[in-house]
Computed example of a mutant assay.
Amino acid sequence: MLELKTPREIAAMDTTGSFIAELLEDLAGRGEPGVNLLDLEQRARDLIAQRGAQSCYWDYAPSFGSGPFRNVICLSVNDAVLHGLPHDYVLADGDLLSMDIAVSIEGWVADSARSIIVGTPRPGDERLIESTQVALAAGIAAATPGNHIGDIAAAISAVAREYGYPVNTEFGGHGLGRTMHEDPHVPNAGPAGRGMVLRPGLTIAIEPWWSPSTDTIVYDPDGWTIRSADGSQTAHSEHTIAVTEDGPLILTTREKATVVNV
């Protein structure tokens, strides 16, 4: 069921989004060679508790996972890209780490992801991360009233094509608000001008992710962690945004939400 948000509700989601941005920035600063993923998980737990927020991941048990998920953040390394289960792994120089988190503050959810390089970049990894960031910006720019969900998808996939990367369509963005996953689904590829018409008050997470050489994914034995089927590196970028009369608002930034010029 689609629920459009009022300006006051969007402001509440912006409060949550700002906290998430601060949390991811804190973890990014700690993502160095020699750091254990479990240390980053614990740091995320501590920050969530200090803020009085609630994890949207803890006890989450969707059909695609081997639930319940008993962590507060997804940490995916190298060829792992989505739903990475934090485990006893020490980050090495050159690792590509993707961090994805959703929390709720006073009943309002925001969701964001970013990929970072640990230490010295491997060839191609900076370009890979950049491509998801550029695609995210393109998808956000397309999120204007009167456009369609397909316009967001087409903008994202156009960037992937420019970089020469294939796009998996099994997982993409989604609506959110009172809960982490609401209507509509926001795919990372598809025809422009198709799908639901975007209306002011719609709040969605836009999240391009991919590897440079395959759109096929495989699951780890843990039942959660998703990897590229050919073992190639992966990257993931995500923001929660609101559609407004004046344009899209990015809610998961450290600054107060402002209209994106398009």
Rank of each mutant, 00 (worst) to 15 (best):
G177P: 11
L251I: 01
H148W: 00
A80R: 13
L198A: 00
A242M: 05
G34V: 08
D79Q: 13
E3W: 11
I204S: 02
T244W: 02
P33V: 08
G84D: 11
L38S: 10
P187M: 04
R161K: 14
R254C: 09
T144S: 06
R70Y: 07
C56V: 11
G190D: 02
S98I: 08
D183T: 10
V260N: 06
F171L: 14
G139I: 01
D88T: 12
W108L: 14
S66H: 13
I156C: 03
A102W: 05
G34S: 11
R194F: 07
L82N: 10
I250P: 06
N168V: 07
R254F: 05
A189M: 03
V159M: 08
P166I: 07
L176S: 00
N261W: 12
H239L: 06
S104L: 04
H185P: 07
A21Q: 08
C56W: 06
K256E: 14
G146E: 02
G67M: 12
P212R: 03
P7H: 13
T216K: 08
G164S: 06
A142E: 07
H236V: 07
P200Q: 08
L198I: 01
H181R: 15
A138T: 09
T144V: 15
E3A: 15
P121Q: 05
A92D: 11
T214N: 00
I10L: 09
R51W: 04
D93Q: 02
S157W: 04
A205W: 00
G223D: 09
I206S: 00
S211E: 01
T15P: 06
A205M: 09
V259W: 09
E25L: 11
P208K: 05
P33W: 04
G65D: 08
T253E: 13
L4F: 10
W210N: 07
I10W: 08
H87N: 14
D26R: 09
G195Y: 03
S76D: 09
P145H: 08
G119A: 08
T214I: 04
S211G: 15
I20K: 03
M99L: 15
H87D: 13
T252E: 03
G124F: 10
S237T: 14
T225C: 02
M1I: 12
R178K: 15
P62G: 10
T240F: 01
A137P: 06
D46N: 12
T258G: 12
L97F: 06
M196V: 12
I206A: 01
H87S: 15
Q133F: 05
N188Y: 04
T240A: 09
T16S: 12
G119K: 06
E22N: 15
R51E: 15
I149K: 02
L128T: 11
S66T: 14
C56Y: 09
P200D: 03
P62R: 05
R70C: 11
A235Q: 01
P184W: 00
R70P: 09
I152N: 02
G65F: 11
G107C: 12
G164Y: 07
P166C: 10
N36W: 07
D26F: 05
T203M: 13
G231E: 00
I101L: 13
G173P: 05
D151V: 07
R43Q: 14
T169P: 02
E130W: 10
